[in-house]
């Protein structure tokens, strides 16, 4: 339980929390690595120096398995399991970079990109941007006229951060951070399928919701959909102090 918090490294994101458990040894792309039982294949891969691309995973949050970017192949198993939700097993042999995997990941990332504003691709430095770059995905084959969320209104009610649904990939990291890290449960996903969206409390502006403005959701967001206003010049500056 402790290592979940105490094993965190600032410069490394293991993807899932470190665990306390007996040692388990496995091979990731022919690199032998030993991790604690209960750890994910994703964590083992990060430890082996074979970090797997991911969007919905963070080592501060329990694994969720929604983004489908972290798929791997495991010898003797069918399909392409998500490495974040797959626990390590002694002697397991994992492949993280096969041609099939690269094709599958590219396909998933292109789908994300198809609903991400094109203008926001320039000079972006979020985890999503970095992942797209690393996987060599700069365009998608779905054209421009498809359904999207580009016009969803920005929630700038909180003086410190804003939420731009156009850039949201609905990975639930903010929802989980609010629940697991902060313990406030102010954020949820409303709707189903393409209508799914991040909402605060009863679909209220963040400032009027139960949100306590701890910043855990902003910290967790991989796409700068939730982002500090202080990082913008011009329009999105800090609001004036209320008493000024």
């Amino acid at each position: 339980m402790w290592s979940e918090l105490r094993g965190l490294k600032d410069e490394i994101d293991f993807g899932t929390p470190p665990r306390d458990g007996s040692p388990v040894t496995l091979d990731i792309d022919d690199v032998t690595v030993t991790v604690s039982a209960g750890s994910s294949v994703m964590l083992a891969a990060a430890k082996a120096g074979r970090a797997i691309p991911k969007l919905c995973a963070s080592d501060m949050l329990e694994p969720f398995g929604s983004c489908r970017v972290c798929l791997v192949e495991i010898e003797g198993r069918g399909g392409f399991p998500a490495s974040c939700t797959t626990p390590v097993v002694e002697g397991m042999k994992v492949k993280t970079q096969t041609e099939t995997l690269q094709r599958l990941r590219k396909g998933v990332l292109e789908l994300y990109l198809s609903d991400f504003p094109e203008s926001e691709m320039v000079e972006g430095w979020s985890e999503l941007h970095e992942t797209l770059k690393a996987e060599g995905v700069a365009s998608h084959p779905y054209g421009k006229g498809g359904a999207n969320h580009f016009d969803a209104p920005v929630d700038a009610s909180n003086p410190y951060f804003l939420f731009d649904p156009a850039k949201c990939i609905v990975c639930s990291r903010c929802v989980r951070a609010c629940a697991e890290v902060q313990g406030t449960f102010a954020i949820t996903i409303a709707g189903r399928s393409f209508e799914s969206k991040v909402v605060a409390s009863q679909d209220q502006p963040f400032f009027e919701s139960e949100c306590v403005s701890c910043g855990a959701c902003v910290q967790a967001c991989p796409s700068h959909a939730l982002v500090e206003k202080s990082l913008f010049e011009g329009e999105y500056k800090h609001a004036e102090p209320a008493e000024a």
């Binding site: 105490r6 410190y160 306590v212 701890c214 910043g215 500090e228 202080s230 990082l231």
Partner: peptide
Amino acid sequence: RMTPWKEGKANHGHSCIKGRF
């Protein structure tokens, strides 16, 4: 920006409205 330090042994990468903002 102030972002919580994951290796901070008192906060493990978490923060509140005061320190963070």
